[in-house]
Amino acid sequence: MGDSSNGDSFTVDKSAKIFVAGHRGLVGSAIVSKLREIGFTNLILRSHSDLDLTRQSDVESFFATEKPNFVILAAAKVGGIHANNTYPAEFIAINLQIQTNVIDSSYRHGVKKLLFLGSSCIYPKFAPQPIPEDALLTGPLEPTNEWYAVAKIAGIKMCQGYRIQYKWDAISAMPTNLYGPNDNFHPENSHVLPALMRRFHQAKVTNAKEVVVWGSGSPLREFLHVDDLADAVVFLMKNYSGVSHVNVGSGSEVTIKELAELVKEVVGFEGELVWDSSKPDGTPRKLMDNSMIAGLGWKPKVSLRDGLVDTYNWYLENLKQ
């Protein structure tokens, strides 16, 4: 479990300086909202144009000037299978640069505690289900996103190395599939849930008769609303201080078929849902073992239905036709 004493100060001082790296993304924006909601008044936020995290000298001078007390590292270059296959050099180089610069500068400039965010894709392609933390590095990765995964694994190991050698409080959290406001709804490179939502919405608007979805609908997937992740991040900053990375999942899974039916209902598409079973299904099951964070006393609060309604409302408000 690890000693949590050095994290206890996290929610005490609401004027503590917290640097949230990647505050404009799906994860970072939810973390910023959560921190503001619980009363933090001194968040340090920099857009990419203000601070390029891949440039070591820029990051070094930022930390020397701002001297944040806490750092939450949610900045990353992310994308789907197509992007990973097309830009492997960028996915490994940019992510390694960002995390190396931020983690090292945080340590050197007296940051009390850092939380590094990864992804469930760090685990081997054929990991046991549900996937426990100790499945890390026990087998080959999914080839389509290994560039990103290797960078994220390096980030976990870097936090562990600095903890072991310098007794510095760096922790890592690995979320499952996330969704919510500020998600990517781009037609080419969005993930399954926003892609389904966009397609059902367009079908509704154009009065289409049917929506065709790839596969049989039988694979099982786990989804976590990004507000739940933000809640877990605050919980871990406050309550966890250990060497192991921590899985953050919902602990419940749905079939792609159940998910599609639910999205169809939330969007209000009246047509038919057709499955093209000649198309591939992907991994049959991908679930995180959530028992470590559950044992610490955290559990998710947002139901899938409520989360989908919330996400669809955001999508409608931010729709750029």
Rank of each mutant, 00 (worst) to 15 (best):
M1K: 05
M1C: 01
G2I: 02
S5V: 09
F10Y: 02
T11M: 09
V12F: 05
S15Q: 10
I18N: 06
A30E: 06
A30R: 01
V32I: 10
L35W: 04
R36H: 01
E37T: 01
L45N: 14
R46M: 04
H48E: 00
S49Q: 13
S49D: 13
T54L: 01
R55D: 15
D58A: 15
V59L: 12
T65R: 15
K67Q: 15
I72V: 15
I72Q: 13
A75V: 10
A76F: 05
A93C: 07
N95S: 04
L96W: 03
I103Q: 14
S105F: 10
H109Y: 15
H109W: 09
G110K: 10
G110C: 11
G110P: 04
V111I: 12
K113N: 10
K113C: 06
L114D: 02
L114C: 06
F126E: 12
P130E: 08
I131L: 01
P132K: 06
T138L: 04
G139C: 14
T144Q: 08
K152A: 04
C159W: 01
Q160N: 11
I164K: 14
W168A: 04
A170F: 14
A173S: 11
A173F: 02
M174G: 00
M174S: 08
T176F: 06
N177A: 08
Y179K: 07
Y179L: 02
G180V: 05
H186D: 15
E188Q: 15
S190E: 06
S190H: 08
S190P: 12
V192N: 00
M197A: 09
H201L: 00
N207Y: 07
A208V: 13
K209D: 14
E210Q: 15
E210W: 08
V213S: 04
G217P: 07
P219S: 03
R221G: 08
E222F: 03
L224G: 05
H225I: 05
D231C: 03
V233K: 05
V234L: 09
M237H: 06
Y240A: 08
S244L: 08
V246Y: 03
V248G: 05
S252T: 12
T255G: 10
V267M: 04
G268E: 03
V274R: 15
V274D: 06
S278Q: 13
D281W: 12
D289G: 07
G295H: 01
W298C: 02
K299N: 07
G307H: 00
G307I: 08
L308T: 01
T311V: 04
Y312H: 07
L319Y: 14
Q321T: 10
